[in-house]
Each structure stands twice: as structure tokens, then as C-alpha cells.
């Protein structure tokens, strides 16, 4: 996944997610932690979807999670992804609760299965932005 990763697309940057991307640039995963109900939330937003509160802090996440589901993509959407196909798109349940999508990267990525334990890492998408990715740490 490292080869050519810089050609892969950068995310759309919304003001909702500024702190998320700034932390990712420093290899840290952060999410909004609600003062109203104590839950982490993702995707980022103004209001907590559980309790409606707009009071929150960006809290650190452990970066540890479990693979909830995954798919090996053979038919890539564009030339950049075609150059790394097949690759794994996974849904990861973080220890803190939220679910997120990412690729599983690393030499053993194509062996990934539901239930595998994974840990966050960060991949550059151009000089100014990094996206969270995950590597397997156990099955």
C-alpha cells in the first residue's frame, strides 16, 4: 500500500473535521467526546447524535479496534487504486465505540478476516495530509 500512496486521493476537508485531520498529520487519532453523554462520535458533527449536546472535546483514541466487516476490492475506481488492487476496505470498530472505514495495510493485509484485531497507522496523501489506516495485530 505504501507504493504510490501519495497518488491516492486526499479526503474532502470539511470544517467539521479540522481537528481530526490536524491530529492525523501528527499521527494521532482523535474523535469528538460528548460532554452531555460521555460517548465518542464519528463522523464529526456539531451535535451529538445520541443526546443532542453541542458541548464536546476532541479526545484521543487508542487506535485499537476490531474488524467488523471487510471486502477485497478487485475492480478499483480509478488508476491510482488500480495500481494497488486487490486491496482491503474494512469497517473497524474502535475500542472507544465508533466505527470507521479504512484500508488494512501491511504485508499480511490480504489475510484479514472479520474479528481480527487491528491498530491505527497513518498514510500520507500528498505533503499536507495523512489518512488513518490500520494494520493487523492479531486474529
Amino acid at each position: 500500500m505504501d507504493d504510490g500512496a501519495a497518488d491516492l486521493p486526499a479526503p474532502y476537508l470539511s470544517a467539521d473535521a479540522g481537528p481530526y485531520w490536524r491530529a492525523a498529520q501528527e499521527d494521532r487519532l482523535v474523535m469528538q467526546l460528548c460532554y452531555g453523554c460521555g460517548s465518542y462520535r464519528f463522523f464529526p458533527g456539531l451535535l451529538c447524535p445520541k443526546c443532542g449536546s453541542d458541548e464536546q472535546v476532541w479526545g484521543p483514541c487508542s487506535g485499537q479496534g476490531t474488524v467488523y466487516s471487510l471486502t477485497m476490492v478487485h475492480r478499483a475506481p480509478n488508476p491510482a487504486f488500480r495500481s494497488i488492487a486487490p486491496y482491503i476496505v474494512a469497517l473497524i470498530d474502535l475500542e472507544e465505540g465508533p466505527r470507521m472505514m479504512a484500508n488494512i495495510v501491511g504485508a499480511d493485509r490480504l489475510e484479514t478476516a472479520i474479528g481480527d484485531r487491528v491498530k491505527v497507522c497513518f498514510e500520507a496523501r500528498g505533503p499536507e495530509i495523512k489518512v488513518p489506516q490500520f494494520v493487523r495485530v492479531g486474529s
Partner: peptide, 15 residues
């Protein structure tokens, strides 16, 4: 797909 939190990972609709 979400432009920030899904599309950067290369899913297609079948994914």
C-alpha cells in the same frame, strides 16, 4: 460514499 471518511479508501458501490 462519504467524501472524507470513505472515498479516500477506494471503495466502489459494490464494496
Amino acid at each position: 460514499g462519504h467524501p472524507a471518511f470513505e472515498m479516500p479508501y477506494g471503495p466502489i458501490v459494490p464494496s
